[in-house]
Amino acid sequence: MTEAPILECRGLTKTYGSHRGLEDFSVALPAGRIIGLLGPNGSGKTTLIKLCAGLLRPTSGQLYIDGMPVGPDTKSIVSYLPERICFDVSMTVEGVMAYYKDFFADFDEQRAKVMLEKLNIDTARKIKELSKGTREKVQLVLVMSRRAKLYLLDEPIGGVDPATRDYILSTIISNYSPDSSVIISTHLISDVENILDEFMFINEGKLILYNNCDNVRRELGKSLDRFFREVFRC
């Protein structure tokens, strides 16, 4: 690899009391990829994402984003989509957009406005007046409107209707840039496998496998979904 990896973990471990969220996790992810973080519930997906987003501190090991340790500098190049709505719901959509623009230099306001318009979302309305699905769309639009180097999407398509899912995946694809990477954490593998370049299988906090999707298809003649089911058979 000639360039620095976008994300590099070396022996990353996170323990909560006696429970191991992540154990000796080591991987180097290059830029320009869409990578699936796949594993059963409680396997450590959210722990890894929170560590990268700066919401958790590692117990041991190292974590570098674009060559820098996690801190305010990495937070300005990492765009995080959590599983829950994280806005102050008394703000309007415009207000939240202004907030993003204020704090994130890489926020592309024009792009956000265009996407919100296409979705017919009235930006003057307050977040608390919007339905849950619309709130999630607003959050997705704002996260994807940042020209970040690393996007962390935690279960972006769980619990959405197929049309919305198509829209979300299409947004991720059209947002693609060779300078940035997207990590999608999900357990709905068959829905996303077409847009993934690579994938990480994670279980019980450990990295089971990191490989390219088409390699799996070529060498094993299986879809990623089927391969996952075999590897994680109960």
Partner: peptide
């Protein structure tokens, strides 16, 4: 409390500030 320890914390603590 709300800004730090409710769901808003997911945004607050990912801002590029110390």
């Amino acid at each position: 409390y709300k800004n730090f320890f409710s769901d808003e914390g997911y945004l607050t603590f990912t801002l590029p500030v110390t």
